[in-house]
Amino acid sequence: MKFGVVVFPGSNCDHDAYHVLKHVLGARVEYIWHKDTTLRLFDVIVLPGGFSYGDYLRAGAVARFAPIMPEIMHFAEKGGKVIGICNGFQILMEAGLLPGALIPNDHMRFRCQEVYLKVTNNATAFTRVYDAGQVIKMPIAHYCGQYFAEDDILKQLQDQERIAFQYCDSKGEINAAANPNGSKLNIAGILNEEKNVLGMMPHPERAAESILDSEDGLGIFKSLLGSD
């Protein structure tokens, strides 16, 4: 099991993801430079958080045309596992690997805080170590994290069990008060139809050591490590 963490100009959670995988979990991990045009052999690709290309135009809109991206799209289309965190989620959305769009938070403020998430689908390669409906805690740090999709797409996401995580309160209640950015259906993370691509706004790599208050994010990487 080998992980690859893509480094774009402006990525700033690449080292965090690398650190958690290598030093906390002892996994094999390498960086992937955005200008590479061939992909070495990986089992999981991480698109990390940050502000790739300064978030110019729209968050993720320029990174999605980086030289490495056709290879990553191809990897995903063949069934390779890809996880996009925060800016990585925005890139996946712009690349069309996940439906919908991430628009500025409804209150127009950058939110950096811990949130509670409900594990809405624990039957995926990314979430298998969690219990169904488990409430986990990890931070968000974004300005452009309001998930938007038309109603028919939202229904499809629900019907196909493609909502991985939803913002909730500490008791697991999904309500407006627990929604930090105005996302439709309190969506914090979604999957593609084949469920080999996950995009999420919260940062599991920032909640992976006890000194950081929460280790709940480790479950995602552990799930992947245990997956086929």
Partner: peptide, 14 residues
């Protein structure tokens, strides 16, 4: 510009 129905919080604030 944003499509109709998409929340434009910057516009609302202005």
């Amino acid at each position: 510009t944003y499509k109709k129905g998409i929340l434009d919080p910057e516009a609302k604030t202005i």
